[in-house]
C-alpha cells in the first residue's frame, strides 16, 4: 500500500533513508529470531526428557508415600511430616538469554529430613521422603527450564510478528511509495520540459 505523502524530492530522500533503516532492522530481527529459535529447540528436547523422567520418579515417590500412609496410619504419618525442621528454598537468579529475562532456580536446603520419632512411624515413610527429596531437585530444574521455554516462546512469537510486519507491510509499502514519487517527479520533469519547449515556440513565432 502506498503511503500518503507528497511527491516531492525531500520526501523521496526521507523515504529512502527509512527504507534503509527498515531493511537493517529487519535483518537484525531475523537474526534474533534465528538465535532464539536455536535456543528454543535445544530446550524443548531437554525438557521433554526431563519431564518424562520427573513424572515417572514422582509417581514412584507418591506410591511410596501412600504405602507409608497406609501402613502407619494417615494421622501418624501426616503428623510426622507436618512439623519439618528442614528448610527448603530456591535461589532465584536473573539470567538474560538474548535480552529475555529468565529466572534460574537453584534449590538450597538445610536441616535434616527425618524430624519425627522413628519409633511410631513406618520405615516406608523414610524411603518415601528420600525418594521425594531426590525428585524435588529435578522438579525445580524442570520448573526453571519450562519457564525459560515459555518466556523464549513468547519472545519468538513477538519477534516473528515484528519481522513479518517489516517484511510484508512496511518494506513493500516504502518501496512502492518511493517508486511512485520518482515516477511522479520524472513525469513532472517531462511536463516541464514540454511546456518550456512550447513557450519557446510561441515566443519565437511572435518575433
Amino acid at each position: 500500500m502506498k503511503l500518503a505523502v507528497n511527491p516531492t524530492r525531500m520526501e523521496l530522500l526521507r523515504l529512502r533513508k527509512r527504507l534503509v533503516l527498515a531493511r537493517r532492522g529487519h535483518k537484525l530481527l531475523k537474526d534474533k529470531q534465528d538465535e532464539l529459535m536455536k535456543r528454543f529447540m535445544g530446550l524443548v528436547h531437554q525438557i521433554k526428557d526431563l519431564r518424562l523422567s520427573v513424572e515417572h520418579e514422582l509417581e514412584e515417590a507418591w506410591k511410596r508415600f501412600l504405602i507409608a500412609r497406609a501402613v502407619g496410619g494417615a494421622e501418624i504419618v501426616e503428623g510426622a511430616v507436618s512439623m519439618p525442621t528442614r528448610k527448603t528454598c530456591v535461589e532465584v537468579r536473573k539470567q538474560q538469554i538474548m535480552n529475555v529475562a529468565v529466572p534460574e532456580f537453584k534449590l538450597s536446603t538445610e536441616g535434616k529430613i527425618a524430624s519425627y520419632g522413628l519409633a511410631t512411624t513406618p520405615a516406608e515413610l523414610d524411603t518415601a521422603l528420600v525418594a521425594m527429596e531426590r525428585v524435588l531437585g529435578r522438579m525445580v530444574e524442570l520448573a526453571s527450564k519450562e519457564k525459560a521455554l515459555e518466556l523464549i516462546g513468547d519472545e519468538i512469537e513477538r519477534t516473528r510478528r515484528r519481522v513479518n510486519a517489516l517484511e510484508y507491510v512496511l518494506i513493500p509499502s516504502l518501496e512502492e511509495t518511493i517508486r511512485y514519487i520518482s515516477m511522479k517527479l520524472s513525469e513532472m520533469e517531462r511536463g516541464n520540459l514540454t511546456r518550456l519547449m512550447r513557450v519557446k515556440e510561441i515566443v519565437r513565432g511572435r518575433t
Binding site: R86, T88, C89, V90, M132, V140
Partner: peptide, 24 residues
Amino acid sequence: MLNKQLALVGEKATVVAFEGLGVD
C-alpha cells in the same frame, strides 16, 4: 539473588508429603 519458597497445590492426601521436605 533472592531466596524464595516452593509451593505445592493438590489433594490433601498427597501434598502433605512434601511438607516434610520444607515445601509449603
